[in-house]
Design a protein around this nucleic acid. Structure first.
Lengths: 143, 143
DNA sequence: TTCAATTTAATTGTGTACAATTTAATTACA
DNA sequence: TGTAATTAAATTGTACACAATTAAATTGAA
C-alpha cells in the first residue's frame, strides 16, 4: 500500500464522517420535525426566531451560515405554510424583516421535545457531546 | 431565561455546528476541487474508486450513505465528463458497475494534494482531528 | 448635491439529497 | 415450474445549497 492510497483513503479523511454524520443525523430529525411540518433548515430558522422577535434575512444568513439564494425561497415556503411573516423594513427598503406568526410561535412548545428525544437516540456521553461541539465550533470560528 | 429557551438555543445544539461546519468545510474544498472539475460528493466517489477497481451503485451507496436517487444522476454527470464508466453487470442485469476511465484515474495524482492542503487550512491539532473523527464515526456506527 | 460605490434581497442555473414510486431482474418457495 | 417476494437502479417530486448575477435602495466622497 503506497502513501497516496493512505492519504486518500476514505477512512482517513475527517471531512467524510463529518459529511456523512450530518446527513444521517438530519435523517434522524426528519420524523420528529415532520410532525411540526418543517424541514431541518426551517427548524433552525424557527430556533432563531424563538430567541429574537424579528431578524432580517441578512442576520439569519449570518447566524445560520446561509445566503439569500437559500433563505429567500425557504422563507417564502415557510410564509406559505403560515409559520413566518416577511415584511420590507420601512426604515430601509432593502431589508426584509422576518418574524413568527402566531402559528409559528405555537410550535415552540412542540419543538422543546425534539432536542430531548434526539439526545436519547444518539448515544454519546455528555462530555463527548461537549467535546464534539467544541471541536466543531472551533472549526466554524476559523472559516 | 426559562428552561425552554435554554434547550432550544442554537448555541446549545450539537447538530447545528455539525450542519454548519460541514457546509463551511465543503466550501473550503470547492476551489481545490474545481481544478479537478468535480464537486465534493463526486470527489468521494473518486476516492472509493481509487481504492477499488469496480463498485456497484449499491456498494457506493453503502460506503457513502447515499441512495440511487442521488447517485444515479451524479454518476451520469461524471460519465458525461468522462471520469467514470457505468456498465450493466452481465452476471446480474439489475446491477450497474462503476469504474474509472483513464481520465478519472489520471486525477489521482492531483487529488493527493487536496487532503494535505486542506489540513493546512484547518487549524486543529492532530489529536483533535483524531478525536473529532472518533466521535463522528461513533455516531455514524449508531445510525 | 450628485453620482459612483456599496449593500440587501431576489433571481438564475447547477448540483446534490432524499422519500416514494416504478421498472426490470432475480430469487424463493409452494 | 410458476408465481410471489425481493432486490437494484432509475424516476419523480420537493427542498435545500451556493456561485454568479441582477435590481433596487442607501451611503459616501468629490
Amino acid at each position: 500500500m503506497n502513501v497516496t492510497k493512505n492519504i486518500l483513503r476514505l477512512s482517513n479523511q475527517v471531512c467524510f464522517p463529518l459529511y456523512a454524520a450530518t446527513r444521517q443525523i438530519t435523517k434522524l430529525y426528519r420524523p420528529l420535525l415532520e410532525k411540526l411540518g418543517v424541514t431541518y433548515p426551517q427548524y433552525l430558522v424557527l430556533l432563531v426566531l424563538f430567541e429574537e422577535e424579528t431578524v432580517t434575512v441578512k442576520e439569519l444568513g449570518e447566524k445560520l451560515y446561509l445566503d439569500s439564494g437559500t433563505l429567500t425561497p425557504m422563507l417564502k415556503r415557510m410564509e406559505e405554510h403560515g409559520l413566518v411573516e416577511r415584511r420590507r423594513s420601512s426604515v430601509d427598503e432593502r431589508v426584509v424583516d422576518v418574524s413568527l406568526t402566531n402559528k409559528g410561535r405555537a410550535i415552540e412548545k412542540q419543538a422543546e421535545k425534539i432536542p430531548v428525544k434526539f439526545s436519547e437516540e444518539i448515544l454519546l456521553e455528555q462530555d463527548e457531546f461537549e467535546e464534539l461541539k467544541r471541536l466543531l465550533t472551533k472549526i466554524l470560528d476559523q472559516v
